[in-house]
Design a protein around this nucleic acid. Structure first.
Length: 342
DNA sequence: TCTGGGGTCCTCTGTCGA
DNA sequence: TCTGTCGACAGAGGACCC
């Protein structure tokens, strides 16, 4: 979907169409979730601190995120996809891979789908069609908004050879920087680099994976259902917190929120973890695996608090989180009962 | 002036039992 | 009985994605 959250907001606030609209949190440490294409012309982009976005685009209309509304819009769109295509792999609220193999007229089907989505929901999207998820993904991003790009693997290699390595999913800012440091600036250069030299810097496995991506080689099938293996709740404070009692109270609140969700879904997990980001932005995790899967707030909370005590933050804390991993469906029995901390 | 929330996956390291 | 090897698993950190 093109600028999805902003587009959903514009459905109910059409008077904002054509303006630089930015969906972002309101706190001092909020970041931009989505920016309209008008706002992007000011240099505003996703994950940018909202304060910086305000400086770059003082005339921008800032809206608070409404995820309940975005989830509903996402459901509408995904339902349309499923009505036309059997295998749909949903990735987040605004993206999906469709398996088109076997369809008599895949291009026409996708043209029809985009029209139907637009007519039914008022939301625009971009389509990339290719022999793999990797080609399709990069193709769909290539001509946003309202793009429709069809590429073979060879065409993708040729078209994106001059592009930076970070264009391809799986090569993020860190890896792109490391590549630049050894003189590899483009996907073409990465694809053509000697494997041994690359392996010396990245290890054999990672080097091979980087080159596979640069050559747009991808054999991963479109899968209908992604299995959730962990669930977490975390919060960044407006101001760093040093008071251990205050941190405990916040952790208990996070545990309650997480466990309410787990119990509702009748899921339990064996591994309980906490996440702490200190004022120097260093991030630390501590985890413990139990003999039995749990979901109740008293069991999860006891472990989480113990982990927090043991870590004993040496500096002020800016983020605190709790996570339950190794999830599996529960039986809704005694452990599934909701128990709240006092 | 800094840098969200909720996830997945990979690598490295240490431990433990076969 | 001792030693070395290997795989499984856990824990920690980090990169990446939407």
């Amino acid at each position: 979907m093109d600028a999805f959250y902003v587009s959903v907001e514009l459905r109910r606030r059409p008077e904002l169409r054509g303006l630089p609209v930015i969906v972002a949190g309101s706190g001092p440490r909020a970041v931009v979730t989505t920016a309209s294409y008008e706002a992007r012309r000011f240099g505003v982009g996703s994950a940018m601190p909202a304060a910086r976005a305000r400086r770059l685009c003082p005339s921008g209309v800032f809206l608070a995120p409404d995820f309940t509304c975005y989830r509903e819009a996402s459901r509408e769109v995904m339902a349309i996809l499923r009505a036309h295509v059997q295998t749909v792999e949903v990735v987040g609220l605004d993206e999906a891979y469709l398996e088109l193999t076997g369809l008599p007229a895949p291009h026409a089907t996708m043209r029809l789908l985009t029209r139907e989505i637009e007519q039914a929901t008022g939301l625009g999207c971009s389509v990339g069609i290719g022999p793999s998820r990797l080609v399709a993904k990069v193709a769909s991003d290539a001509e946003k908004p309202r793009g429709f790009v069809v590429l073979s693997r060879g065409q993708a290699c040729e078209r994106f050879a001059p592009a930076g390595c970070g264009l391809v999913p799986g090569i993020g800012p860190r890896t792109a920087e490391r590549l630049r440091a050894i003189g590899i600036h483009t996907l073409g250069a990465l694809a053509a680099a000697p494997a041994t030299g690359l392996a010396a810097h990245f290890g054999v496995r990672m080097a091979a994976e980087l080159q596979r991506r640069a050559r747009f080689e991808d054999a991963v099938a479109v899968s209908e259902q992604r299995k959730v293996i962990s669930e977490s709740r975390e919060v960044t404070f407006d101001r760093d917190i040093s008071d251990p009692v205050k941190l405990e109270q916040i952790l208990e609140g996070l545990v309650r929120r997480l466990c309410v969700a787990l119990v509702q879904q009748q899921r339990r997990g064996r591994t309980i973890g906490i996440k702490i980001r200190l004022d120097d932005f260093s991030t630390h995790t501590r985890a413990r695996t139990l003999a039995q899967a749990v979901s109740s707030a008293d069991r999860v909370g006891a472990v989480a608090l113990e982990l927090l005590h043991r870590f004993s933050p040496p500096r002020p804390v800016r983020l605190l989180g709790v996570r339950v991993a190794g999830l599996r469906a529960g039986d809704g029995g005694a452990q599934g009962q909701l128990t709240l901390l006092p």
